[in-house]
């Protein structure tokens, strides 16, 4: 594919290093460039359908348009993002694979962003329909618990401590937090709730046609955007990881040089 223009080129070429395709001076690649353009195109289509082409709803009016981002972002974070974090955490604990640790972390961070979107759009949708931005309903409460748990996961990843112990703690939290998602999933079935049930029962779609198109565009747009973000976040995480390793090497080399044999004797204090 000839993709000379890319979303990444917005920030301009990097200063001194050779900007050939193999220099990796940015986190972009051919795959993410294509993915980036597909995301932008589907976002444009979503905005066109969701905000302009699709009609208002018969009772809730224009506010139905929040549905096209609320439900897709919920699906992306709860079903995709945190599942990747769960799988990555399990594999990390079994194999100590740095790759899966970083994948789990990248997916969780982007997932938290999308969960934030779910909460924000849900609140904005709740006011004109339910009559309140927030209520401590089972589904809303379990979603809020998840949000805090994954914020905790991200906080653990930022702790200033031994990287291996930190990754292990994060992985354990990544697994525990996933269990809570099952409560969200079934909260509308287990408890009486203000929140509506599953609208998109495949056997009985209760959405009007152009609304359904808007919804699927939302799902496609947010999934593609999620994929793009996770790949880039992973590459940034990999750079962070490499830089940590490099700095540790430098620090050890410096200390070895300056401390000498007396330093060795005082070690482990």
């Amino acid at each position: 594919m000839t993709t000379e223009m890319s979303p990444e080129s917005v920030s301009g070429p990097s200063s001194t290093d050779q900007s050939g395709p193999e220099s990796f001076s940015t986190t972009a690649s051919k795959v993410t460039t294509v993915l980036g353009w597909l995301s932008l195109a589907s976002i444009a289509a979503l905005l066109a359908f969701g905000l302009l082409i699709s009609p208002p709803e018969i009772s809730q009016g224009e506010s139905v348009r929040l549905f096209y981002i609320h439900v897709p972002s919920a699906i992306v974070c709860l079903y995709i993002a945190f599942s990747i974090t769960f799988v990555g955490s399990v594999i990390y604990l079994r194999k100590q694979s740095v790759f899966w640790d970083l994948v789990a972390g990248a997916s969780a961070e982007v997932g938290v962003v999308f969960l934030g979107f779910t909460l924000a759009t849900g609140m904005l949708w709740g006011k004109p329909t339910w009559g309140t931005y927030w209520t401590w309903d089972p589904r809303l409460t379990s979603t809020a618990v998840s949000f805090v748990l994954y914020l905790g996961y991200l906080a653990v990843r930022r702790l200033d401590m031994d990287p291996v112990a930190r990754s292990k703690r994060a992985a354990i939290l990544g697994i525990i937090s996933f269990a809570n998602l099952i409560i969200i999933r079934y909260s509308v079935a287990w408890w009486r709730s203000l929140h509506q049930g599953t609208t998109l029962d495949p056997r009985d779609t209760q959405l009007d046609d152009s609304m359904l198109v808007s919804f699927f565009l939302g799902l496609v747009a947010l999934s593609l955007t999620f994929a793009w973000l996770v790949i880039h976040r992973f590459r940034v995480a990999w750079l962070e990881h490499q830089l940590e390793a490099q700095q540790l090497e430098v620090a050890i080399a410096e200390r070895t040089a300056s401390a000498g044999p007396t330093g060795l004797a005082a070690g482990g204090a």
């Binding site: 699709s54 208002p56 709803e57 018969i58 609208t199 209760q206």
Partner: peptide, 14 residues
């Protein structure tokens, strides 16, 4: 407090 429950079907206005 009065909260209105969502209807689970969405019908185009026009």
């Amino acid at each position: 407090q009065i909260l209105v429950k969502h209807s689970e079907s969405y019908v185009a206005d026009n």
